[in-house]
Design a protein around this nucleic acid. Structure first.
Lengths: 348, 348
DNA sequence: ATCACAGCTGGGAGCGCTCCCACCGTACCT
DNA sequence: AGGTACGGTGGGAGCGCTCCCAGCTGTGAT
């Protein structure tokens, strides 16, 4: 496939050596200047910088990576199903944050979509070969072998979201529990007496947390958690519809619903409309994520906003830390939880 | 910044040389096997393959890239504003397509978000240094200097969307004109006598094409194009609102609207509702893009679907071709236009 | 004046590959 | 038998950088 590719060109570009010659110094010195080493006199530094400017020298990352045995790149790994499951903005906001934070670094961002087990294996090989300096993993499932693999080969890694309450790998997560709790408290505060919830797949920790937040809010209001007010779905619109139908048949008297994702809320909204229930008059509805879907629903959906872009940025910061100071293997791993915020709209 | 980064590890991994030793052959032979050269006997090939398997050898891309003076990577360049301007799915669908098509290649995908002129300069340097084998450019503006730069340094590149009718760089685009035309024909076919349009920024070719499609459909119906039925906006929701208000004041009798993007259609929908116009009863509405927004509007929006993921795939195929067979500089550049499809929903 | 010790500097060695050329053997000619 | 050709092979010479050590200079202490 790649066999016939022509030479990329680039010959004729000035090399370190040429810069050294022009500046009248040695290779090592130029290298030091380029890499900002302090052990260079000002005179020399200036001379080298001028030569660099005159020649339009740009360091060859590939050669640098080979010599230094580092990659100057981090991989962002995205399991394909997630890009469909989660509302798209999540995905692109993460990328945006990661990109922004990486911008003033000389690290490349490698994007890796994983669809098939074969591709996952390829990635594992690739990572084992240490062809990147660190890995960013988006929405890992509890049974994903990747994090352990990374740990084993001592590859710095950061997750977005935890796999469980006792996550050992560094991660950046949203305050799912708190966000859900505030959503349900809001519903209760608006006088809703019978608040139901549509959960995500409960084998995902994120879904557990959001359900936990629901529980907490219900209990805080001095009420009991009624199992008939809980229906679990799978973060999809169709799942939201199904769950809403189930809820409606179990507890026709409900007057509030907290859906653990906007897309499920959208599904629920449709079923509500089919059944002649007005939103928010008959049933108040709140989602989670504050995606584009929420803003464009009718009525616009109250939703819990996560600082997704900031999560991307935070992941990079944590990863950089991991890459830089991984000397003591015993140090506690950085783990952070970002706050969420309820965005009130007309649906509640 | 990156100065303190520890060595990436990877030492201790088997090298080509070790594989050669184990298989009892020379380096060159192993290299040939790895790269699938036909000039190797079956016996030798088998021996090498076995050694590779036993050692768990994975070629070092960095070394390969340095020696072969190629990068084994392509860059996907995304101007930041676009990720906000266009509905997000466009962006992630392109990525998905690109990733999929690249999967059975040994090319890496480098993601580059451009926010500031400084970053654009950095990218230009980077590209000039031939650190990638090719470039994928998403939604380039007419005045973007990048395509010309790429042409000058003979860097293979493919655009998504054209800058003008006479685009010289290889591109992959949707049939914007045809899609718009079919949307408007649909509206007219449904008996709408006074069909208006909300255009994108007319300095963008994509917006011009969609307007052109509107014109074509109107003329095909034997009607005149009434300038009072055309309002231009900027692909944003707020722009859609403004344009809709303008349209309504100029031609209160309109009964159909073709918005050149779903998001603008959403804005228009709001204004329509504020003015007590029902959709589709009073005014039929059609958008462009078929994004999540369209599906979740109330009523769900009829929209023109573009094969976005397929565009991503096609871009990669075209780029691969460019990279591979760029021998004759006079050969016509591959340019392709993908069909669009009207998705009918309740808004029309 | 002598010595020690910094702070700078030059350049050899090597990272793991690809490219390419010389070379080997065998099969097929004349 | 000697010549020719060609598929197959080994390994030297780099690719452009970083690392590191030896060496060189100038300063201050003795």
């Amino acid at each position: 496939m790649a066999g016939t590719r022509r030479h990329g060109g680039g010959r004729g570009r000035p090399t370190l050596e040429e810069v050294a010659a022009r500046a009248g110094v040695g290779r090592g010195t130029v290298s030091r200047v380029i890499n900002g080493s302090p052990r260079v006199s000002d005179r020399t530094r200036t001379a080298v910088e001028q030569a660099v400017a005159e020649l339009g020298y740009v360091p060859n990352r590939v050669a640098r990576a080979l010599a230094a045995n580092r990659a100057d790149a981090v991989a962002l790994v995205i399991p394909e199903p997630e890009t469909r499951l989660f509302a798209e903005p999540y995905f692109s906001d993460i990328i945006r944050g990661v990109g922004a934070e990486l911008a003033d670094t000389d690290l490349q961002l490698l994007l890796t979509l994983i669809r098939t087990p074969k591709e996952r294996q390829r990635l594992a090989d690739y990572l084992s070969a240490h062809r990147v300096d660190g890995v960013l993993l988006v929405s890992v499932h509890a049974d994903d072998p990747l994090p352990d693999l990374l740990e084993r080969i001592e590859m710095p890694a950061v997750l977005s979201g935890r796999r469980s309450a006792h996550e050992t790998v560094p991660y950046v997560d949203s305050d799912n529990t708190g966000g859900a709790q505030s959503a349900v408290e809001h519903l209760i505060g608006r006088g809703r007496g019978t608040v139901a919830t549509i959960t995500g797949p409960l084998d995902m920790y994120v879904a557990q947390c959001r359900l936990e937040g629901y529980h907490a809010a219900v209990r805080a209001a001095g009420r009991e958690v009624d199992p008939e007010l809980v229906a679990s779905a799978d973060f999809t619109e169709e799942g939201g519809r199904r769950a809403m139908r189930q809820l409606l048949s179990q507890r026709p008297d409900l007057d509030g619903v907290f859906a653990a994702s906007d897309v499920m809320a959208a599904g629920a909204r449709q079923v509500l409309r089919e059944n002649g229930r007005g939103v928010p008059d008959d049933v108040a509805l709140v989602g989670f994520e504050d995606s584009a879907v929420a803003r464009h629903m009718d009525p616009p959906l109250t939703s819990v906003r996560q600082a997704t872009e900031e999560m991307g940025r935070a992941m990079v910061r944590v990863l950089l830390e991991e890459i830089g100071g991984r000397s003591d293997r015993t140090a506690k791993r950085p783990q952070m939880v970002l706050p969420t915020q309820l965005v009130r709209r007309e649906s509640s």
